[in-house]
Design a binder for these strands. Structure first.
Length: 277
DNA sequence: CCGGTCACCTGAGTGC
DNA sequence: TGCACTCAGGTGACCG
């Protein structure tokens, strides 16, 4: 499931591989992916040239010419796959492909497919005004890589709740999901069950340092290849460095006690009851 | 306003 | 082998 490091990796790959190309044709196989304006989706993209590709929280942001923007959220199983062979949009449709884009440049034709097994993902096109409105509506919190410890402490303690749930709240901090929340809490030796109002400035500063170190390292390793995450230009390998995610029932890497899986806010949460306090 | 739960979806895994 | 069931988790909607 793509979180901040995975979306960052995909954005970098797309920037390298398709920026500068022009969208010549769009095919939609599953309308819900592109939201309510199904009829307007393909025309709003056709003929536009792709500029920079970036990331806002877990959203992928693709700049187009004329001030238009494509936002994509991969949710659980969204993937972008680039087919370099010309004519792929007409001749091949990969399993689970929901949207296809024929991209052309000087002497180049590629096809970008959006795949999504579970169909939770969303692709939407915005003009400048509607993009501003939509981002206001999402009200995403700051990126954890751009936070200092004072600000992080204020944010985290501004809402009372269990620490794990607070970290997953995208309106407080954007980009963390289940994997990196569990890994960061383990690295910081903090219990996912801690109520945020019990946290000291020292503890939140320590947690932020671990979050930033883990996210930065995960980006270097091109993300974690679990479930259906797939980057475009080489696999991610950070899953080999996971300490707790997916390891319930195994011994804690720090103290040897058995890692335990609990549910917090409806989400599986793996932690070490002995050394996360 | 808040926390809890479900809906959205499909495929993999499990137990009988 | 086949079938029913559970689980995976990001997010928005809904409910008490």
């Amino acid at each position: 499931m793509p979180e901040l490091p995975e979306v960052e990796t995909i954005a970098k790959d797309l920037r390298k591989m398709i920026a500068g190309l022009t969208i010549a044709e769009v095919k939609v196989d599953y309308g819900k992916i592109v939201g309510t304006d199904l009829a307007g989706f393909a025309p709003s993209l056709t003929g536009r040239t792709i500029g920079d590709v970036g990331r806002i929280g877990k959203w992928l942001k693709m700049d187009l010419d004329s001030g238009f923007t494509l936002l994509a959220h991969l949710k659980m199983t969204g993937q972008f796959v680039l087919e370099e062979k010309p004519g792929a949009l007409a001749s091949q449709w990969p399993a689970h492909a929901r949207v296809g884009f024929k991209l052309v440049g000087e002497g180049v034709e590629k096809t970008l497919f959006y795949l999504d097994i579970r169909k939770f993902g969303r692709l939407r096109v915005f003009d400048q005004e509607s993009l501003t409105n939509y981002l206001d509506f999402l009200a995403l919190g700051p990126d954890p890589l751009n936070l200092n410890s004072d600000r992080f402490h204020k944010i985290i303690t501004s809402k009372k709740g269990r620490l794990k749930q607070i970290l997953l709240d995208q309106t407080l901090v954007s980009g963390l999901g289940n994997i990196y929340a569990d890994e960061s809490l383990f690295a910081a030796s903090l219990s996912p069950n801690r109520t945020t109002d019990s946290l000291t400035k020292l503890e939140t500063a320590h947690l932020l340092a671990k979050i930033q170190a883990i996210l930065t390292e995960a980006i270097e390793f091109r993300g974690s290849t679990v479930e259906n995450y797939r980057a475009l230009d080489g696999p991610g390998s950070f899953q080999d460095r996971h300490q707790v995610y997916g390891k319930s029932g195994k011994p804690c890497p720090k103290c040897g006690q058995i890692l335990v899986k609990i549910r917090i806010g409806g989400r599986g949460t793996v932690h070490c009851p002995a050394c996360q306090t």
